[in-house]
């Protein structure tokens, strides 16, 4: 071995120095918003870098947000839209992925390609057509309209990820079930729990874009009653642009749930992306 212990330790140190620099760069802006949201206006400007203490602490921004914004309603809209879209995507996506990865039949490759178009071509490009369709169906300013769009948006990626995972499930298991007389539907239900590790990757590539989307809420469901968090925050910020306390607090309130969810699931997310990638 040519590398000495000292050289290796030096390299480790420089690795971590670079990583720390970029981690600071990534966190610093978020940190500034969170800490300053708990300060009185005077100190947001007077002492932006300090941590809030008993002198500078204030909740005035949060009070403004809670009394003047629609944020609680926006949250529940986002939750309804994201959870129902995700549930439908998982159900329909796993069914299609199972059929495509399990059976060799005429048209398999074509259907796989047809569904893959949606991975590369953004659904946004069909917006003019989508809005016409939504008005024809009377779904403008209805959460159901958003859910249908997001199912179409999320399916291609989900089918792709799930087929990757499903083709790793050992054949013996399914053959044994077939010999026992299980129906194909039964075998699908047998396979489902085995691809649970794929959920992390689906969370990153399917669920987060739905929660964060601005475009379709802005175009298809812009009314106050149906606005999602992303749109609600955007509109609130537009109105309260000069009220710094309210701006910082609403940003923090919109960020924190996502950050907590992410920290909770980040390990599983990474592991699941990795598991899919190594195989393919």
């Amino acid at each position: 071995m040519r590398t000495t212990g000292f050289a290796r330790r030096l390299r480790e140190a420089s690795d971590f120095a670079i990583l720390s620099f970029f981690a600071l760069l990534a966190l610093f802006p978020i940190w500034m918003i969170l800490t300053n949201s708990f300060k009185a206006r005077k100190f947001i400007f007077g002492a932006p870098f300090s941590f809030p203490d008993s002198e500078t602490f204030s909740l005035i921004g949060y009070q403004t947000v809670l009394s003047r914004s629609n944020l609680p309603q926006n949250f529940s809209n986002s939750l309804i839209v994201t959870v129902s879209s995700l549930a439908m995507i998982l159900l329909l996506g796993s069914m299609a992925a199972y059929a495509l990865s399990e059976y060799r039949f005429k048209g398999n490759a074509f259907i796989g390609f047809y569904l893959a178009i949606g991975i590369m071509i953004p659904i946004r490009l069909g917006t003019v057509g989508i809005l016409r369709l939504m008005s024809a169906l009377g779904l403008v300013n209805h959460l159901a309209g958003l859910v249908l769009i997001y199912i179409a948006q999320g399916l291609p990626m989900t089918v792709f990820i799930l087929s990757n995972f499903m083709s790793q499930v050992p054949d013996e298991l399914k053959q044994a079930a077939r010999i026992d007389g299980a129906s194909e539907y039964r075998i699908y239900r047998l396979v489902m729990p085995l691809v649970r590790p794929a959920l992390g990757a689906i969370g990153i590539f399917t669920m987060i874009p739905i929660w964060n989307d601005l475009w379709f809420p802005l175009i298809v469901a812009p009314s106050g009653r149906t606005a999602t968090v992303t749109l609600g925050v955007q509109q609130f910020l537009g109105q309260f642009v000069s009220d710094w306390n309210a701006v910082l607090s609403s940003l923090s309130m919109a960020m924190v749930p996502v950050i907590l969810l992410y920290l909770l699931f980040s390990r599983q997310m990474i592991r699941s992306i990795t598991a899919g990638a190594i195989k393919s």
């Binding site: 259907i111 569904l115 057509g129 369709l133 249908l148 179409a152 399916l155 089918v159």
Partner: peptide, 16 residues
């Protein structure tokens, strides 16, 4: 799945 995908993604895209 293919139905919803066709109806809300492919057809609007072609219509556009």
């Amino acid at each position: 799945g293919a139905l919803i995908y066709s109806l809300f993604m492919i057809l609007p895209l072609l219509d556009s």
